[in-house]
Structure formats: structure tokens, C-alpha cells
Design a protein around this nucleic acid. Structure first.
Lengths: 162, 162
DNA sequence: TATTGTTATACTCTATAACTATA
DNA sequence: TATAGTTATAGAGTATAACAATA
């Protein structure tokens, strides 16, 4: 408990994780933009395509949950992707309220092509850090990403204020 | 060059870095919120205090650049912090346009106390991953954070569109 | 003329609420 | 009655533009 007593002024040995992660996420996202532009994709369109490519997703509601986006936000994106022939959207025969989503061949090809170029650039950046640290970074990121978000946030989210 | 030819459909061995980093940054930032609330700090107020604590910053313009925020955005935050006695703000005698900024004793104590609690929570989360990977993660994040942002973004930022 | 800080305004992004159709 | 998708509206957050003081 004595780390409590001197916690008031002591300098920490590292910066906060969010303070390091957020600018890096921003920088890598910025690095994606010219590549996505070259493939005529917005960031959200790319997120949707990759999510559909990596997971078998049925409805728009599930896609919204998987991407963390609001369900109303992905609608114009889906409209555009469908008009360009990158996804198929058709009513579920079992429940005609639901719209089933699927990548077309060209949708899969396009997002994988963009992703390959993005990750090639990322590897160039990662090549600048120590190989052992780089491997640890990738394993740690995968492990942290696999945790349920509440294990990180502590879900002290909305304490009911009565 | 043959990785070009099959890049169209091949599944990558990992997700994009931004796709992993952004949700983690979000989750760790969310974890900070209840702690900051307990110290009566907003996220931006905390960012300002930590930035002043970690770097010797003179003017508001330099603070804005260091935090990545627009100069107009930090003004109401500085007003509040000054009113609460957490920072001092006074004109530079050498150039009376410039407002010099400095943490007060209480400002330093408050942000270090919040930071200690934040990092204690972070360590609990980090304890869940392999110690070697955890060490590699922290070294890799420090190394990547030390890079100029343009080394990650590739500064293909604003191609002049004449 | 150029720069620091400030204020007021406009814009972008995102979520909320209201509606249709299916169940 | 409840849910999936859609549309229209309102709100939060952010940047842009105009201004005063100083150099």
C-alpha cells in the first residue's frame, strides 16, 4: 500500500497505454488512406468488406455489431457497395425482415488486394523495430484483441445514477 | 514479385495493425474514464496536464502541437484548469503575445495520482498475457511512438491538387 | 506584415427518434 | 407486441474564419 503514498508525484516508467496506442492507430489508419483511395474505397467501406471477408456474417445488425458502428451508419455504405457489385444483399427466405449479406468475387478480390498492399507497408514500418519485440508486439496485440472488451474497460461504464 | 499475383484473394496471417490498435486504444481510454471522473478530470484536461508534466512546454501553440489538438480547442480547457488552480498561465515577459504555461503543485499531484491509478489498472490487464510478449509489446510501442509520424503515414498526405 | 491567443461560425460525423414491413 | 431495416432529424465534436494585441 505504500505505492499509494508516493503515487501523488512519482514519474511513471512508461506512458499510458491509450496515449501510445491512439496516435499509432491514427498514424497507421492515415497510412491506409492513399491505398484505399487507389482502390476507390473509403475507410468504412474497407472495414465492412474486411469484416465480411473474415467472418460469416448474416444480417446488417450483426455486421453493425461486429464493426462497432451504429446500424444506421452502415446503410449508405452498403448501398454503395451493392451498387458497385462488391456485395450481394438479399432477403432471408426464413425471415424476410432480415437482409443477408455476402461478398461478391470482385468484392473479395478488391479488399484482399487493398489489404495486401496495406500490410506490405506495415511490414516495412515493423522492420524498423527489433525482431523479437516485433514478434512479441504481434502476439500481444492478438491476445489483447481476443479479450472481451469489458476485461479491458472494467465495465464500470454506466453506474446507475438514481 | 509472385506475391503480387496471388495477393488478390489470399487470406493474411494477421489483421491490419490499425484494426487491432484502434479498438484497443478505445478500450483503454474507456477504462480511464471512471478514474478521471473520480479526479474531476475530462479526458482532454488529463491529456493537457500529462503533456505539461512530461514536457517543458512554453506556449499554448506548442501545447496544441504536442497534444495533436487544434489551438482553439484547448482554450476552454486551459480556462477551466486555471480557474481550478491546476495550472498557471502568464504572459511571457520576452514576448507579451505568448502565454506561458506551468503546472501548479496541485496540478502535478492530481494528474500523477490519476495516472498511477490508470497504470495500476493497465498492469492488471497486461498481467493476462505472456510476460515475454508483454515486455516486447511495451518496447515495441515505445519504439514506434518514438518514430516521427510521417515514417508511419508515409506522408503521401496532401498531394497538391492543382 | 506576421504571429499569439481569442471568439464566433460553419461543418462533419454520429447517434436518436420516428416510420415501414415483417414476424 | 417486438424486431430488421430505413429515413429524417438533432446533437456532439471539430475545424475554419475573422478579430484584437503584440512583434
Amino acid at each position: 500500500m505504500d505505492d499509494q503514498s508516493d503515487a501523488g508525484r512519482a514519474e511513471p516508467s512508461r506512458r499510458d497505454l491509450a496515449a501510445m496506442l491512439a496516435p499509432l492507430a491514427q498514424a497507421f489508419a492515415t497510412a491506409e488512406l492513399p491505398i484505399l483511395r487507389a482502390h476507390n474505397l473509403t475507410m468504412w467501406a474497407y472495414v465492412v468488406l474486411i469484416t465480411l471477408a473474415d467472418n460469416p456474417i448474416r444480417s446488417q445488425a450483426r455486421l453493425a455489431a461486429a464493426t462497432g458502428a451504429d446500424k444506421t451508419r452502415i446503410i449508405p455504405i452498403l448501398d454503395d457497395l451493392q451498387a458497385r457489385g462488391l456485395i450481394d444483399r438479399y432477403p432471408d427466405p426464413a425471415d424476410r425482415r432480415v437482409h443477408l449479406l455476402a461478398l461478391t468475387d470482385e468484392g473479395l478480390r478488391l479488399c484482399r488486394a487493398a489489404q495486401a498492399q496495406i500490410q506490405r507497408h506495415e511490414e516495412e514500418v515493423l522492420a524498423r523495430i527489433d525482431p523479437a519485440d516485433r514478434a512479441g508486439l504481434l502476439r500481444a496485440l492478438a491476445a489483447l484483441s481476443a479479450l472481451p472488451a469489458e476485461e479491458i474497460t472494467g465495465d464500470h461504464e454506466s453506474p446507475p445514477t438514481p
